[in-house]
Design a protein around this nucleic acid. Sequence first.
DNA 1: TATATATCCTACCAAATTAGTAGGGATTAA
DNA 2: TTAATCCCTACTAATTTGGTAGGATATATA
Lengths: 138, 138
Amino acid sequence: MLSKKTQYAFKALEYLAQQHGKDPVKISNISIHQKIPLKFLENILVELKNAGLLESKKGKGGGYMLKVAPKNINLATVIRIINGPIALLPCVSLNFYEKCKDCNEETCGMRKMMLIARDATLRILEKKTLEDMIKNEV
Amino acid sequence: MLSKKTQYAFKALEYLAQQHGKDPVKISNISIHQKIPLKFLENILVELKNAGLLESKKGKGGGYMLKVAPKNINLATVIRIINGPIALLPCVSLNFYEKCKDCNEETCGMRKMMLIARDATLRILEKKTLEDMIKNEV
DNA sequence: TATATATCCTACCAAATTAGTAGGGATTAA
DNA sequence: TTAATCCCTACTAATTTGGTAGGATATATA
């Protein structure tokens, strides 16, 4: 399951995607509209900024903006930044790979199954973007 | 990611699947062959038994056996027993559903995306079985 | 019936992770 | 210069994870 932090990240990005192209959005604004604890949200936005998804402006009239267009931010990217690996096992993770001890990766049946599952999940999460997300709001 | 407990569960089931049809397998035997801490393994096996996947026999010559044939135990079932939900959000979970507050499930774009992702993942995890897993060991 | 062999049950524990909060520092617009 | 705004470091409580301890219970067999 995604952590609450990751869910908050998506909620914040969703809001910023809706405001894309307009003025910077203040943290307090996002916090109120999306019901995210303000100080917790600060942490989240800094992480998304450091990862290159957002840019910020300080001082009056400042706030956060998307640095990348909504259609170019896929869901897998967001999950990896805030939540971590998408794969079910470290030994089948593309971005957080860890060798598993006591198991031969060439022959491990569990690994093969989890590879197939990972591919199926990623096929969706890497294709769907923030734009898809907000366009699907009815 | 799957917890270590879930990975141990798969390792134990894999071993029991290989011994399917033969004599009961002792916990200590599984523990040694699959390198799982013995007392921790006890807990895991009891859970799998309570869920109906295993049966046990006490006393001399006793041990654990699969109650269900390997081809009838799919990976999603095992994950749900030991790890919990497979979906990325509680509000798209089939077996561990929870309503999300502050969000209309009919219109929520994030929910729609996570539903699609869940379906893709489940399509694999519900199709692949313990039999597939051990047949893929080379 | 006694004994050895197994599983089963209840309880406990340390370390890591999650979900925040507190308080002030740095930067910028006006 | 000052008010507004993001940024940084540190702390904390609650929960989850990954176990361990010790004995109770059931069973095969002599």
